[in-house]
């Protein structure tokens, strides 16, 4: 108990939680945009892998850090275009295409990695984004290290939640996106194209997923490993459900989840943790995600047209 209190009172714990949450926040917002427009994007896992690699590789090849983030964004949008075109105008199964895009993005990444770096045994490192402490605020206890001494990409993640909420709920564009996911027929009746809106949403969302991946190689770590995304994409899909398809609640979910993840890492190092198998701690995030899905199942407000292909002139 005392060990637990020690963990919770350390600023490093809260800082770690926010750091772990950052890639999840980007990718969860990305998935949320896709699903609000009516398209399930199971390409998320692979797109995060591609984003992680693309951003890192761009910096390793001599580009600056922010151009690197832009490269990741662009690569994510390209895979989003593939997913969008196949699922929206062609109306293919969103499940099958999504898994196909994950396979495609992952395999393309590994292939390119091997082509670009054939000889290396240990992947090279880059100089990642440095923390940017905000004067005065970063000196606050607990909150300071957690919220005001992170890398700029973390601040961007929070900004991204704000932007997504504002756009979704306060602009005509957001209304069109939400309507495409609830009642696509009404959108067409307004003279707008459901196809264009959905493809656009999937591309924007996929770009954010890739930036989430890039956070791993350019902010959390400084190198690219295979398996480094390790199911984070699937967890983000669970987080969207947990957040009831609302940006604010999804952010809360990501923070909560990351808090548990940071906690399990620290609990492993306590005397209790030494007695229990470490795999139990590692499994905790996945178990929590399933529990969250179960807990939310009754109250979930799924976008009405999620996974329903829209074809003009068809009822």
């Amino acid at each position: 108990m005392e060990a637990l209190l020690d963990i919770l009172l350390a600023g490093s714990f809260w800082a770690a939680a926010v750091r772990i949450a950052s890639p999840l926040i980007f990718a969860t917002m990305g998935e949320l945009i896709c699903e609000r427009a009516g398209v399930l994007n199971l390409g998320i896992e692979g797109i995060m892998v591609a984003g992680a690699f693309a951003g890192w590789m761009a910096v390793y090849s001599g580009l600056g850090l922010w151009p690197g983030v832009a490269v990741a964004l662009g690569v994510g949008m390209a895979f989003g275009l593939i997913h969008g075109v196949l699922t929206v105008p062609f109306g293919l199964s969103q499940h099958v295409v999504g898994l196909g895009v994950t396979l495609l993005a992952t395999a393309a990444t590994y292939y390119t990695y091997r082509l670009a770096l054939p000889e290396v045994t240990a992947p090279p490192r880059i100089a990642p984004l440095a923390p940017l402490p905000i004067p005065i605020l970063s000196d606050l206890p607990l909150i300071g290290p957690a919220l005001f001494a992170q890398t700029p990409l973390t601040y961007l993640a929070f900004g991204c939640v704000l932007a997504v909420s504002l756009i979704l709920y306060r602009t005509p564009l957001g209304l069109a996106v939400r309507a495409a996911g609830e009642n696509p027929g009404a959108v067409e009746a307004q003279g707008l194209s459901v196809t264009a809106i959905r493809i656009g949403a999937v591309m924007a969302g996929s770009g954010l997923m890739a930036v989430g991946g890039a956070f791993l190689t350019m902010s959390a770590f400084d190198s690219f490993f295979f398996e480094m995304v390790n199911g984070r994409g699937w967890i983000c899909i669970a987080l969207v459900v947990f957040g009831a398809w609302k940006p604010g609640k999804a952010l809360l979910g990501a923070l909560l989840f990351a808090g548990f993840d940071a906690l399990q890492i620290r609990l492993q190092q306590t005397p209790l943790g030494a007695d229990l198998p470490y795999q139990l701690f590692l499994a905790l995030p996945y178990v929590l995600s399933i529990l969250a899905l179960v807990a939310m199942s009754r109250r979930a407000q799924v976008p009405a047209a999620l996974m329903v292909p829209f074809n003009r002139g068809e009822r």
Binding site: P89, G91, L173, A176, G191, L192, S193, A196, G200, R312
Partner: peptide, 8 residues
């Protein structure tokens, strides 16, 4: 948001 009009 209008885009090309295609359908299956």
């Amino acid at each position: 948001m209008t885009g090309p009009a295609m359908r299956l």
